[in-house]
Design a protein around this nucleic acid. Sequence first.
RNA 1: GCGGUCGUCGUCCAGCCUGGUCCAGGACGUCAGCCCUCCAAGCUGAGAACACGGGUUCAAAUCCCGUCGACCGCACCA
Length: 498
Amino acid sequence: MCFENAARPMMSYDEVMRLALERGFYVPSCEIYADAPAGFWDYGPVGTAFKNKFVELWRREVLRRDEMVEIDGSQIMAKDVFVASGHLENFFDPIVTCTKCKTTIRADRLISEKTGKNIPERLSDHDYDSLLKENNVRCPKCGGELGQVSKFNMMFKVGVGAANLDTYLRPETCQSIFVDFPRFFKIMRGKLPFPMAQLGKSFRNEIAPRQSLMRLREFYQAEIEIFFNPDKVNDVEEFEEVRNYPLRLMRGEDTVEAVPCEKAVEQGLVPSRFVAYYLSLIQQFYEKAGIDLNRFRFRRLAEDEKAFYAKVAFDVEVQTSLGWIELVACNDRSDYDLKRHSEVSKSDMTVLDGDVKVLPNVFELSMGVDRSLYCILEHSLVKEEKRDVLKLKPQLAPVQVGVFPLVTKEGLPDKANQIYSTLKKEFQTTYDVSGSIGRRYRRLDEIGTPLGITVDFDTLKDDTVTLRERDSMQQSRIKVSEVLQKVRSYYYQEAQLV
RNA sequence: GCGGUCGUCGUCCAGCCUGGUCCAGGACGUCAGCCCUCCAAGCUGAGAACACGGGUUCAAAUCCCGUCGACCGCACCA
């Protein structure tokens, strides 16, 4: 299958940003202050509702579906956690700055380019300095003299208590899951495979955050860590459900092939049934979340692209006006994490699988929430001839239904208000009297509200109202007494209403 | 972090070069009122901005410097 889709004209980043700022999806954090650093954004009222809906969908369609347990860990974590995880050692980049043109470059890459040798990433600053000198490496850009090698740590350090104890803001939420695993596995009477999930904030001190939600210094991750027995990766009950489900796998430079799970495993495109199952799960989730699958792919990472702990890695990537964006890292972390935590903390992390003692391996689905939200917005925003409409899945709509009096005469507002009062107890509802009815429908369209209910003069005669649907703009008349039931069935059964 | 471009109402844009006519103008949106029978109609009115800090000058949105931010490119993105 080739990538030619374009079922909809691609919306641009600028248009999504305009929507975000005008309608209150997200805005720069601390924007009234000039010293606000980049890479921090606040979700507004509409954006928060949207994010909450997205997370709820994840809980329902992924966690509850597979009986995963969810935890909520602390964001500040002990230093030794990151000694064990490898972040203190590996989360540095050795960088060197040219004294002449001020370009900053990675020292290890410079040396290996010059010498053709593989240079370890984890030498001391001093070793890098000598290597640079020995090989007479100069700035590749201007030929100028290079300065001293320094290291840039991507983790935020936090001083805790009066003693200013060194701790760190977690750079990935999964560390909470790893350190909590032994206790919760026991408490929950867990059996392998045992999936633990978490939604929370992570922090990375990016050098150059850009493009609003795409690269943040403080961001939400929704992570699932599945603890499993590596000897049983093809012994997966649930595989039956997805045997014929087509995974969208990237083949070659820019083609994507939809390969049924079974075939993908047979051909070695995906290493095991276990992995194939979870890749299906995440693809199905994004489809339900409103990502256009024609612009969705799994990309298997090459050896030199993978994170230091990953044995096998697939990225979920989604095509946007900014290019292909990585939304989920699906990594086989092997026993790296539990082994390291068990070594550094000296606690036993093995568990029983049947009557065999095993140190579980971990497969993770590490989702970037903020980026996902951006991509859904971009894929959902549609410019029609007469209007901009955000065609969000009903389940993700920040506001579910709008109620309007057609005009402000003859008690129509009172009648509309009664309906509003009933609906708002159960649904996110908005009531709007301002402007022409068409204008009010447009306001709904722009934040993706699927349903509008309009009270008119006929309502006074026969107790019926107009029900208007966002995407088709079609209208139908329903009885006032049926409104609540209709809205319920729309959201709970996703029935066609009009 | 480097280089280039840039930063004016909620949004988009004019004004800047050639300082004073700008307590900043327009459009769209918002709010109030009028109008009132289904997709951004019309009329009247209102509120709303020179990113921040310093400098030059009799006078700064306008010129200069710095900081922060945005966009593009490089680098970075375990």
